[in-house]
Amino acid sequence: MSKEIIKVSELDPKFKYEIMKEPGGEMITACFACGTCTASCPVTLVDAFYNPRRIIRMALYGMKEAVLKEEFVWLCSGCYLCQQRCPQGVKITDLMTAIRNIAVREGFIHPSFTAQLDFIYKLGNIYEVTEFDNKKRQKYGLPPIEQSTTAEIAQKIIEAEGLDKLLKKEGE
């Protein structure tokens, strides 16, 4: 984290309103910075780079670019402990997801999620069930999994929602 002075001219004061329009982001301005989230966080416990209170403060200050560009929001493990405990009813886990959605639209999707989207598009799921896997399933008396059907369905959804533009291009 840089210790540079925040320049007001570089802030986007409307960022918080943008977040409030996203499902899960509605309550962000209720945060009074008590830090219950950070104190509860199992990620912060091992990696202080992730600090939900700081991310919320940065978002409220309008530090849009820093919040979206850095890995911050992608490090939430989604355990909902902070959300469970927040005395102000800020849905912090959902808020991180809301900010991720904005980051995606602004071109800052985390590569691990591009990879997952690619798999869903190709398979309808994030893991490939190979012929070998299906033979193994058969050996144990389990029904086969046919991913050509599920892939077709997933493609329809991804294309209808305009997410296909996020997929890796051939050769990338």
Binding site: E22, P23, G24, W74, T97, A98, R100, N101, V104, I109, H110, F113, Q116, L117, I120, G124, N125, I126, P143, I145, E146, T149, T150, I153, A154, I157, I158, A160, E161, L163, L166
Partner: peptide, 25 residues
Amino acid sequence: IPEFTCCGFPLKSISHEASILMTAR
């Protein structure tokens, strides 16, 4: 039900709407 796809979990971080659509199906 062989037509069940991904639950929608990974999509949630990318697009809330797409995730809900996949789950709702």
